[in-house]
Amino acid sequence: MKRREFLKIAGISTILGLGGMSVVNELRKGSLEAAQYAPDPKTMAAKRWAMVIDMKKFKTADDYQKCVDVCHSVHNVPDIPDPKREIKWLWPEMFVHAFPAQEDLYLSEHYKHMPFLVTCNHCANPPCVRVCPTKATFKRMSDGIVMMDMHRCIGCRFCMAACPYGARSFNWQDPRPFIKRELNPEFPTRMKGVVEKCTFCYERLAKGLMPACVEASNGALIFGDVTEPNSEIRKVLNSNFTIRRRPELGTGPSVYYIIGGNEHA
């Protein structure tokens, strides 16, 4: 055998060997005993979670700041002063920024400066999930929550380009030095190089708890299963006119806004 041929055969068999190994590993994975894993019976189940944000009930800056603070503190979200590096899960935006296509020269000052809480819309048809090359962000089949698997994210930021709501933040650096408040010992932080966003408090739902912002909102945020005709959220949707952010894109956002009446009107 010539040296050249030997090298060829050695090279090809190495590639085949490695390839074969990954196939074997993949097959073995499926044989693990799935029966050992089960959801917590306390878990709150729904076919599709959704949230209504009732702007009538947000009277003062304090009202929405409470929601933001509780969210950012239970999830160990850092406070990064540089807006370019900011990490945000839930935050207020003025009407013109939250609903840019609805801009109107004659919109009342009251609405113009109303701080709308914005967050991940947990879309029915999420573009971020469509573009993610590793399924690190995915839609939970059970309840429609758009999840983040921080263990799998490669930090390509395709999802940030795809999200029409600006809901995603990237860790441009190690976030830990920027977490000024007391850490929540039950929840992890994130590491540099991964994307994060609101997850509708999936970790609290699993314990039978409402999302933290909903709990802190004094009824201004209504959370529930929109597929359930008798749920509170459906009653609210039936009795109020609501709008969603950029529904024309076909993403099917699950966050609704009640603008409500104006006391000056």
């Binding site: 050992q36 894993y37 959801p39 698997d149 699993a206």
Partner: peptide, 23 residues
């Protein structure tokens, strides 16, 4: 299992159940 399938409980070989969480 926790992040992707929404499972939280692990049933060990001895039948005891545990919350699947490193932290």
């Amino acid at each position: 299992s926790v992040v992707r399938e929404g499972n939280r409980l692990y049933t060990a070989a001895d039948g005891k159940s545990y919350d699947m969480s490193l932290q």
